[in-house]
Design a protein around this nucleic acid. Structure first.
Lengths: 216, 216
DNA sequence: GCATAGTTTATGTGATCACAAAATCACCAC
DNA sequence: GTGGTGATTTTGTGATCACATAAACTATGC
């Protein structure tokens, strides 16, 4: 076997499998804010004992994806407006920097891929599928930021996405948007033109505006 | 008992105690890069079983304070130059923002406290005590940033400090600096003058220059 | 009907064990 | 000496158990 880390790595430690599945669930907004999770419940669901479930939970809690009560009970975070604004500011700080670093390495093939993803986003919007919208929207950003060659910065940004996941779930479930992703077109245009300040602004706008309407 | 969370909380979960102690050790540069840690070793050291030690380790690994090998073995991270530069860029992005947010709330009492901490830093330098220097230096920054009322942003910044801890240990153990902290005086002056752009620049300079000389 | 006290259940914490894999060490051939 | 090979020890992983505490429920008294 040439590839030791296949997509579905069945010989990976089970705590890692639990961690990864729960992580994508939370980031994609499949869990509403305040959802309660239990070690034995997760263990039953994934067919493992409490031990791997506990490690996965604590790992997610360390990244801010889960909230621990004082008695150790764990729920998805239910953020207040000030915390949401702060996380939005963090996105507005980190993501333009990532985009700027990706700009010199953004070839045609990358821009084409972004356009394809953008179409998938439009489909998710027209189908009123919040989870698919959130997943493909993050895929758009991650695809761009991967070119920045800045793994620590990208990891930190994904941590912010994680923390916002349940909030996004509640947000997109509430308001039904029908607008196509205009900001993404601006981002692609700036990439094509090699316009660095324009790219920074477009990314910052895209990242900020979606969350501004929630706290209003 | 009016205060349920005393400084030395002996009734806190033991995994939390192990976590906190190891966290400050790493952040203060008491562990050299590449130091190997074992579950049973930590358990013996703290008088607990493997279980709490494991949770503490995994929590620290999730924050980037520890590196896990493919076989699950855990060491303090030994960062390459590109990763150091990236983390320095992260500090240069986050900390000026925190300082800027703290500026309108920086009263005289805070500035006085910063001056006192600055004297302690000078003492640590004259005594050639790298750990005390690192600890008081971080205390200077944290004292300022606490006023920003941005807990998520501060937590993210501390995560960066954590990741840089062992590297700082190696750095300050190598080169023997004798210069007093001039950048901190510039920061304090900008705080006094209410000079927001000057403060951002001073913080960015202080944060960046210390790490630039390492990668050179 | 409702609040409250007592009981029962559910849940997190920590210890211990068995197991497999990896690292270390020792020994031996060359 | 040096390189490789087998045995031994170390180490992480996961399961299971006992225990304490917090939540949920129930019954009882007013």
């Amino acid at each position: 076997m040439l590839n030791p880390a296949k997509p579905s790595d069945t010989n990976a430690p089970s705590h890692d499998q639990v961690y990864r599945q729960m992580r994508t669930r939370i980031m994609h907004g499949e869990l509403a804010p305040g959802t309660a999770l239990t070690l034995r419940g997760l263990g039953r669901e994934f067919g493992v004992s409490m031990t791997p479930a506990r490690e996965a939970i604590r790992r997610l809690a360390a990244e801010g994806a889960l909230t621990l009560s004082s008695s150790g009970r764990v729920t998805t975070p239910d953020l207040g407006n000030d915390r949401i604004e702060e996380l939005a500011a963090l996105r507005g700080l980190l993501e333009p920097e990532l985009a700027s670093r990706a700009l010199p390495r953004a070839h045609i093939a990358l821009i084409d891929r972004l356009q394809v993803i953008n179409q998938t986003i439009a489909e998710a919007i027209s189908k009123q599928d919040p989870v698919a919208y959130l997943r493909t929207n993050l895929e758009f950003h991650r695809t761009l930021y991967l070119r920045a060659q800045a793994p620590a910065m990208l990891a930190m940004t994904e941590t912010v996405w994680l923390q916002l996941g349940p909030t996004m779930c509640a947000l997109y479930g509430r308001l039904r948007r029908t607008e196509p992703p205009q900001n993404h077109r601006t981002i692609i245009a700036a990439l094509r033109a090699g316009d660095e300040p324009g790219l920074r602004l477009a990314v910052r706008t895209d990242v900020t505006q979606g969350l501004k309407m929630l706290v209003g």
